[in-house]
Simulated scan of single mutants.
Amino acid sequence: MTRLTELAPRRAVIREVGLRDGLQSIATILPTAAKREWIQAAYAAGQREIEVGSFVPAKRLPQLADTAELVDFARSLPGLLVSVLVPNLRGAENAIASGADLMLVPLSASHAHSLANLRKTPGEVVAEVARIRAARDAAGSRTLIEGGVGTAFGCTIQGYVDPDEVLRLMQALLDAGADRVSLADTVGYADPAMVRSLFERASATAGERFWCGHFHDTRGLGLANVYAALEAGVTRFDACLAGIGGCPHAPGASGNVATEDLAFLLESMGFETGIDIGRLLALRARVAGWLTDETLHGTLWRAGLPKTFPASLADAATATETTGASA
């Protein structure tokens, strides 16, 4: 097992997915101008990986109908890795045309959830990834393909998901042409022991191409699961500002790990994230003002940073609190 003290360099990356995974799961349709403000403020706070939307039909997810415009805006920010979700070849073609840096293709290890979410079996999704890879290469595009294996720890529809099946599908995605793979606890079933075991096996399978962990805080174990993933050597994680999000086809799966809480956990343990937590809390307050009818999550915004935290960051967060960081 990798000990946290052995991780070098001690750097971790948080990919903000609130603009896609968060907004697609709530009723509020945020104006494009507000989303641009969100991206700009997240960038100013130090975030360098942001998932700005998804290329899905607007009639299915009107919350994400402006994804192409957001990709264009986000690409103007130097050093920002701009990612999008694509459910199929058509979406991938749109992502390639937009110039996105990375497209995430979701695959569910649960056959029941796969049919509900994508109307395809896992095997059909793998075949779609092969077509996406062929289209990407034919276009001469540099857009990376990430195969995201969801319901990796269980499913609210199917129940048990075999870890061996998760790893088989992960390898199948790599064989089909995915540049990178990731694992998601889509329905919040994971515990730290499960995460450590599966992530260690996934790292042995995919090596450096095992890219990211995605956790939900549905049962209060989100950050504990992040810690277990860190012990397995994974240092890149998805998170949603204010813990919004979930999955519309996974009943009861709500509340992604909150970006601000995750940033605090990592920075408190000595990992460099490049994130200004004070600015992040200020952004959370702004987003809370836009989403007044939605339920937000997280704890750092309420408690603030402890006095034992580095003085510069603690002072910034205190200043944020006085301006009304609330939800």
Rank of each mutant, 00 (worst) to 15 (best):
M1H: 12
L7N: 07
A8L: 12
A8I: 01
A8M: 11
A12S: 12
A12D: 13
I14V: 07
R15P: 00
G18K: 01
G18A: 05
L19N: 00
P31T: 04
T32V: 02
A34Y: 06
R36T: 07
I39Q: 02
A41S: 14
Y43E: 11
A44W: 07
R48G: 01
I50P: 01
I50D: 02
E51I: 00
G53F: 04
S54I: 02
S54H: 10
R60M: 15
L64D: 00
L64E: 04
T67Q: 12
E69G: 06
V71I: 13
A74M: 11
R75L: 14
S76N: 14
S76R: 15
L77I: 05
P78S: 15
V82G: 03
V84M: 08
P87A: 10
E93V: 03
N94M: 14
S98C: 03
S98K: 00
S98P: 06
L102D: 01
A109E: 11
H113L: 11
L115V: 05
L115H: 14
N117E: 12
N117T: 03
T121D: 12
G123V: 00
G123E: 13
V126T: 01
I132L: 08
I132F: 10
A135D: 05
A135F: 07
R136I: 00
G140L: 08
G140W: 10
S141A: 15
G147R: 00
G148V: 04
T151L: 02
F153H: 00
P163E: 14
P163G: 12
D164S: 13
D164E: 15
L169R: 06
M170P: 07
Q171Y: 10
A172S: 15
A178P: 01
S182M: 11
T186P: 04
T186H: 10
G188F: 03
Y189M: 12
A193F: 12
M194C: 09
R196C: 03
F199N: 04
E200I: 02
R201H: 10
R201F: 08
A206G: 05
G207H: 13
E208C: 08
R209Y: 11
W211K: 02
H214F: 06
H214K: 03
H214L: 07
D217N: 14
T218M: 05
T218E: 09
G220H: 11
Y227C: 07
A228M: 09
L230V: 04
E231D: 10
V234Y: 05
R236A: 08
G245S: 04
G246M: 09
P248M: 09
G255T: 02
T259D: 07
D261C: 01
A263L: 13
L266F: 07
S268N: 15
E272T: 08
E272C: 10
E272K: 15
D276S: 13
I277M: 12
G278K: 06
W290Y: 09
W290T: 01
T295Q: 15
L296M: 11
G298P: 06
A303F: 12
A303P: 03
P306D: 13
K307P: 04
A311N: 13
D315S: 14
A316D: 14
A317L: 12
A319G: 14
E321N: 11
T323Y: 10
A325F: 11
A325L: 09
S326M: 09
S326C: 10
